[in-house]
């Protein structure tokens, strides 16, 4: 993609090699190539170092305006994005649903156009409708970063999960990753499936048949409702949140029964590899999808995931800040 270094007539003491994402937006992992995923993860390593310095701030996004547009409550993801933006010196603006004009009946398209009129550089969108980011991306010139859309994708979560796995295991290819929980309603699942299968992991998904999406086999994963089978020899076990209201849809009889059949306990964990990692995108339901001893146990990397979230989001913000089109060399 990039021309050989020698032909670029660059100032040799100034410009390192250039490489970029192809799209102006990050809508989902589905749209990314393995090269782009690797670029984000590599960049996140450098960003992680920024967070370890005495002064955790670099001027990279000085003068850039980032709007965090959240139509769903999310302390964790919004905070993580906001810290990432501030560490890169961007100006950040938080718009939460309660304070937005949406309650007055404005459409998402109109909200977006009004924001756009104020010329932000990037919009980080969290929305309860699948595809809301695609809609925004068609309307807006700003870069759109998907911070979770309905049941569709949550790409930065999958990237931070992959980053955390790679830190521990030094690779993603060939690892057995078991994802257990409410598969049907999980955007984290979809993003992780796309990412991990692209990077060559052996992905197993597990949950009650009522919570397994249709045609799951076409995603390139193995699906089972036998939790022991999913856990056996797993390198990574990722647990997904079980929402209380799912009982009402008759997806399973009770939280107690769910825990008995699918909950991750120390006993179940013994079937996994000795150096298994336990992951959870949060927020956790202790005693439902995960026993407290496991959540707080030696295999758990749940808090590392949170820490890495900032680095990964810094990487995404940084890489998208330049835009997608390749400027002709001046």
């Amino acid at each position: 993609m990039s021309a050989p270094a020698e032909t670029q007539q660059r100032r040799t003491d100034e410009t390192p090699a250039m490489t970029a994402l192809r799209s102006k937006d990050l809508l989902g992992i589905a749209e990314l190539t393995t090269g782009e995923i690797a670029l984000i993860l590599d960049t996140a390593e450098a960003m992680k170092e920024v967070g370890e310095r005495p002064i955790k701030k670099v001027p990279a996004l000085r003068g850039k305006t980032v709007v965090n547009l959240f139509f769903e409550p999310s302390t964790r993801t919004r905070t993580s994005f906001e810290i990432a933006e501030k560490r890169l010196s961007a100006d950040t603006l938080n718009i939460a649903v309660a304070t937005s004009s949406v309650v007055k009946g404005e459409t998402l398209a109109d909200t977006a156009l009004n924001l756009e009129a104020m010329r932000p550089d990037m919009i980080v969108l969290r929305h309860s409708s699948s595809g809301a980011c695609h809609l925004l991306s068609r309307i807006c010139r700003s870069a759109i970063i998907n911070a979770g859309d309905g049941m569709h994708e949550h790409p930065t979560q999958a990237l931070l999960d992959a980053f955390t796995i790679r830190e521990h295991k030094k690779r993603l290819a060939g690892l057995k990753v078991a994802i257990i929980g409410d598969l049907l309603h999980s955007r984290v699942l979809r993003s992780n499936i796309h990412l991990l299968t692209k990077m060559g992991s052996d992905v197993w998904v597990c949950g009650p048949p009522t919570l397994i999406p249709a045609d799951i086999g076409r995603f390139g994963v193995r699906a089972t409702s036998a939790v022991d089978e999913a856990v056996t020899d797993a390198d990574v076990i990722m647990l997904l949140r079980i929402q209380l209201e799912r009982m009402e849809g008759a997806y399973f009889p009770s939280l107690r029964e769910y825990f008995n059949v699918f909950g991750m306990t120390e006993a179940r964990l013994r079937r996994a590899k000795p150096d298994v990692m336990i992951m959870h995108p949060g927020p956790m339901n202790r005693g439902v999808e995960i026993a407290s001893e496991v959540a707080d146990g030696p295999y758990s990397v749940i808090l590392e995931q949170v820490a890495n979230g900032v680095a990964v989001r810094m990487a995404v913000l940084y890489l998208l800040a330049g835009g997608a089109e390749h400027e002709a060399a001046a």
Partner: peptide, 25 residues
Amino acid sequence: LDITLYRDDLMRQSVGPQPLVRRTE
């Protein structure tokens, strides 16, 4: 030392790929 995040030309181009950031150690 990686100086990419401190470059004064970083955000001056309206569009264009971002230079690769490497780790400072």
